[in-house]
């Protein structure tokens, strides 16, 4: 029994690490920012953490805070040009940003270790800490959802003109969402670095971007459950159906296309919507009558 659980521990760690980045992606999308830059910001956090610990001998907790700050600050800088763009142009700009981060990681050899990356990072992060981080992340997302910020994000995503007409500052809220997302990505980038001894520049590239995006699109972009369901299913699937493991990216790609076509809201959001429909539908006969009378 214990062995079985231990066998799944790497998978659980992977799930928790990816869940954090999935929430970082989810948060910006909720506020109507079409950023795909999450893995770029994770790379910023990971390298900040790795360099501070390995080169400067900083303790891991301090380095983690620095990673959050670096992710948030880079996102803040990036939000200036992004605020002038919308939709697909934001997506393109943020993919370009990832490209810039990747190039810096490779060519700024003195700081980042170049193509070799950073090795010899002390492993300070294990499953318990990741569980704690996961719980904290979910709580934060829950708190934001049920606050004035979550309401403003929802309004902006669905209709900017309406949001503005109700006094919601679009630039301020989208910047806040993007900075929070950047800080979260920075933290999870650093957690990944402190969990795995080494960082290589290609780690935060295109496949990772597609994986994170798949979790959110497949799971759902508006409910809190979306990233959890999406990340869990897509990480477990290749393990359950072993032959799929080698073709992980192929499976993600196909699932992404299928989801967009047949369940555009993602599985969790679709299920929640159906459940709500049934609950309200059961009450409908009485409702319809009152509605007619009013």
């Amino acid at each position: 029994m214990m062995n079985l659980l231990l066998g799944y521990q790497p998978l659980l760690d992977l799930f928790l690490l990816h869940l954090g980045l999935a929430y970082a992606q989810w948060l910006v999308l909720r506020a109507g920012v079409f950023s795909l830059g999450t893995v770029g910001l994770a790379a910023v956090g990971a390298y900040t953490g790795g360099i501070l610990v390995v080169t400067y001998g900083l303790p891991a907790p301090l380095a983690l805070i620095a990673s959050a700050l670096s992710g948030g600050l880079v996102a803040l800088a990036l939000s200036v040009p992004l605020a002038r763009l919308r939709g697909i142009y934001q997506a393109i700009a943020t993919v370009a940003f990832i490209q810039i981060v990747l190039s810096l990681n490779i060519y700024a050899t003195n700081v980042t270790g170049g193509a070799q990356g950073i090795t010899g990072i002390p492993k300070t992060v294990g499953t318990p800490l990741l569980l704690l981080a996961g719980a904290a992340t979910i709580y934060l997302m829950y708190a934001i959802t049920h606050s004035r910020l979550g309401r403003a994000f929802d309004a902006i995503r669905q209709n900017e003109a309406v949001a503005a007409s109700l006094g919601v500052s679009i630039v301020r809220h989208q910047t806040l969402a993007f900075v929070l997302s950047g800080a979260l990505a920075g933290v999870y980038g650093a957690l990944e670095a402190f969990h795995s001894y080494a960082l290589v520049p290609s780690q935060f590239g295109f496949p990772y971007l597609i994986a994170i995006l798949s979790y959110v699109v497949f799971g759902g972009r508006t409910s809190l459950w979306g990233p959890i369901v999406g990340t869990a299913v897509l990480i477990l699937l290749p393990e359950v159906v072993r032959p799929l493991a080698d073709a992980r990216m192929l499976v993600f790609g196909i699932l992404l296309i299928l989801t967009i076509n047949f369940l555009p809201k993602g599985i969790a959001d679709t299920l929640i919507e159906r459940a709500r429909g049934r609950r309200l539908g059961a009450r409908r006969p009485a409702e319809a009558d009152t509605a007619k009378g009013s």
């Binding site: 709580y139 934060l140 606050s147 004035r148 309401r151």
Partner: peptide, 15 residues
């Protein structure tokens, strides 16, 4: 009600 919401960003973030 957005215009009348007063709680700080920090308390909104932390619930």
């Amino acid at each position: 009600f957005h215009r009348h919401e007063r709680c700080s960003t920090l308390s909104a973030l932390l619930g």
